[in-house]
Write a protein that binds this DNA or RNA. Structure first.
Lengths: 336, 336
DNA sequence: CGGCGGTGTGAAAACGATTCCTCGGGCTGA
DNA sequence: TCAGCCCGAGGAATCGTTTTCACACCGCCG
């Protein structure tokens, strides 16, 4: 208490001395695993209380080989989708008294591997959201990361438990919705061209286009953030599309905002859809038509599987969440 | 690699044996602190590379007495304000190669203390956002938590570094804004009655009311979430106010949403303001008039101070961020 | 009355690093 | 030529637990 105020708390030996027993006995009392004489136990507990003793998690971790922590690595903490996954994970893990350490790669794909490994080493397990990591790199990384659960990375070559949103199938109802409203020239504002989830959306859209030969699909390079969506305005206008499928809600909202500034009316002059159904999608002007993905549940399911893995049990089956279309006000009939 | 795939990675002794040196030497090479013969060092490095050796963070932590982790405890991870603080903290800490472990108390004030202590014990420091914890409890807790930085808890009795938003002064421009628009009967949708930040807002409003005797201030119990704001609709309508100051943006958005469903026009029939300027406040219908608080910076400044504390340096001065009013479309002249 | 099982306890070996202390040897300066 | 010094490296203590192993003691049964 003198200067540093870094009062090292009492250790187990202090308790042992005070109670007049060996450290083994103290340990046994604290963990309650083995039988110890009730009288002795009471003495130990009293001593522990007096000294305000609490076992050092570090020391326990070292000998037990587990830290009671799991990590999650996301591309961008500012993205509401990952915030929700984090929340689902954190709350679920907390119920089993695990803590969550969080890191975002700030979209720097290059250092993602190193970060993941580092992160994993200070924890018992990892949840990895790395939509842009090349599959080969991911595969070679997995053994080092186990136990690990992947989010939005699926592949027959991957052995780790995987939770995905079915972007490929999920985006088709949105396209169909536009089609039914009479849109024929439809733009896709693509995310990172090398990301898996972008690829899936594209694939879904190509399937859709194949089934609807009257549709003209225009791919417009864009990005994944609000700013990207805002900046893509001119390209969208120039493309002559009547409906725009944004990579995600953030992009859609950025676009909506830019359209509003420019005086372009939505949905009268242009229909816009998002993806993810983030909490605020329903409050845009107009409310955003989008496809909802149960991201909090994604986090919870991730924990379930991690937990199983940590207990050396078999995790539940992989899950592929089918997005559900939410029709709101940002889409309407094509103008004649 | 056999069954568990839990391949214990190589230890320092394995490297030492392979390189034909003592563990001390390996340690010295890895940390690069002391001089070792370049040839020996190279042998060690080679061995380490072959064995893919990486020092166990746990063991290091135990002997070094630091974990390279800090924790943050927030009342609710779903709240965009805390998400932003977390992000600011996480990114700033990452630059100094610290990681952040996160926990939310899910608004359970009762267990907050225990949670904070537990959390702190597995880390080197803590950022605490506990707006509802009684001050005496907080004070008695602080010694156990140090080094700690507080967010939105200020008091002359508190010795820890503190970062605050000046809710008391900050809410007055919003009230003044409504007053200038002609509003005289103004409602305050209060947050948790026992929370500090609610108290500050109330205090500010009372000051304002004192300076403007023509104003009638109505306090309406509400809450802090979107749902609370949505549910308070009837009470707001019944109160007969022409302008509503919501505790925060979430509440304001909930109210806006309910008003919209009910067909009450904003701002023609009722003006609404928020607080915090969360990222989506500008995209509501109509865009939300609010007071902006630089939450990401709050997180960054928190890290600065934590870092100083960890280095046994004196942290920078406490900061009191003055919110800045953002006038948008949700406020307008009172109807005659 | 003596071996025996069961029970509570203590000593000591992990866990995997860092670091202080010691020591041998080569070089320098007297 | 010898004392002293510096440099590089090894040995051992340490961090704070858990857990195995051994041991002493007690009562029970043969």
């Amino acid at each position: 208490m003198a200067k540093g105020a870094r009062g090292k708390s009492a250790t187990i030996v202090a308790v042992a001395e005070m109670a007049g027993v060996s450290v083994s006995t103290v340990s046994r009392v604290m963990n309650g695993n083995f039988k110890v004489d009730p009288a002795t136990a009471e003495r130990v507990r009293a001593a522990a209380a007096v000294l305000k003793y609490q076992p050092s998690p570090l020391a326990r971790s070292l000998v037990l080989g587990r830290t009671q922590m799991v990590a999650i690595l996301v591309p961008d903490l500012a993205n509401p989708t990952f915030q929700s996954v984090l929340r689902g994970l954190s709350r679920a893990a907390a119920k089993d008294s695990y803590r969550v350490v969080v890191a975002d790669s700030t979209e720097q794909t290059s250092e993602e591997s190193i970060l993941a490994v580092e992160l994993r080493r200070c924890c018992d397990a990892l949840v990895l959201c790395a939509p842009r990591m090349p599959e080969d790199e991911l595969l070679s990384l997995l053994p080092q990361l186990a136990p690990v659960v992947l989010i939005n990375r699926d592949s027959p070559r991957i052995s780790a438990p995987t939770l995905t949103a079915d972007y490929e199938t999920g985006i088709q109802p949105l396209a169909l919705h536009l089609h039914q409203l009479g849109h024929r020239r439809i733009g896709y504002l693509e995310g990172n061209p090398d990301s898996v989830s972008n690829d899936l959306r594209l694939r879904g859209l190509r399937t859709f286009a194949g089934e609807h030969p009257d549709v003209e699909l225009v791919t417009i390079p864009c990005g994944v953030t609000f700013e990207h969506g805002h900046a893509v305005l001119d390209a969208v206008v120039a493309s002559g599309v009547t409906g725009a499928l944004a990579f995600n809600d953030l992009v859609a909202m950025g676009l909506l905002s830019a359209l509003h500034e420019k005086g372009v009316r939505v949905p009268e002059e242009l229909s816009v859809t998002g993806f993810d159904d983030i909490p605020f999608a329903r409050f845009t002007t107009p409310p955003l038509t989008t496809a909802s993905v149960p991201v909090v549940e994604l986090g919870e399911e991730a924990w379930k599987r991690l937990h199983a893995l940590l207990q050396d049990e078999r995790p539940d089956h992989d899950l592929n969440f089918r997005p559900r279309i939410e029709v709101r006000g940002s889409t309407g009939p094509v103008r004649s």
